[in-house]
Design a protein around this nucleic acid. Sequence first.
DNA 1: ACAACCTCCTGGGGGC
DNA 2: TGCCCCCAGGAGGTTG
Length: 285
Amino acid sequence: MPELPEVETVRRGLAPAFEGTRIDHVMQGRPDLRFPFPERFADRLAGQTVSHLGRRAKYLVADLDGGESLIMHLGMSGSFRVEDQVTGGDSFHHERGKLAAHDHVVFHLQSGARITYNDPRRFGFMDLVETARLPDHPMIARLGLEPTGNALDGEFLASSFADKRTSLKAALLDQSIIAGLGNIYVSEALWRAGLRPEREAGSVDLDGLEQLAFAVREVIAEAIEAGGSTLRDHQLTDGSLGYFQHRFAVYDRAGEPCPRPGCGGEIQRTVQSGRSSFSCTHCQH
DNA sequence: ACAACCTCCTGGGGGC
DNA sequence: TGCCCCCAGGAGGTTG
């Protein structure tokens, strides 16, 4: 699933089609994804206009002019596609209820465009909440710092990681500390900072944490710039691909030489709480 | 409170 | 070709 850079890329692709156009109607292919859709989901969206499509961590948030916000999470395998100016019988076909495999929600817009949410594994979800109560939503309320701004620095990590016995890997995946990192960018950031994923979070000194904060912000910024990473499912909303995966230093590169100049180490895959970590045996400590 | 599992679900790839 | 097992970008829930 998409991590923050992929979700931000999706947001940028969707915003021009979504914002400022009325939602004529919504087709919903099933009653639930990871969770049940909220009551009268499709009816509540019909006739509304998306005033702004934003993002918080890995969540997309579409503010509606009726005072509610639509929260969308892509889970592991969710994606959107935008089809402009749907023409002829194809559109008619869709409105009659024919959905392609794993298409779960179709937004029919007044502009004539169609936005389709597809999610094979169905770990994603959508919810509606009063915009004023968005900060209190259970999935939003506990989120930590965005890794995109100045607030994420060594001091912040020092106070967040103090006395933490858990690994750096687990601490960086904890969305209540930094919100938006996932399995790929945690491995990449730790490699850039020269820190082992298994290292106890509370054991890193301030200098190391400053390097880590810098590495997280840098890798996230570069990945957003590149349009995210395309592994299996993630594509941009127009069907094109992000290309940050070509710049992975360690992710999914077990057995390859460490790309750090002069290092000479080998990248290894380890498993922590059931998830893969990739790191260099030589230059990460 | 914390940390290490397990779980939801489908599909792709590798080994035999 | 088929089958079976493992793996996958998330994260809430349960266990100890």
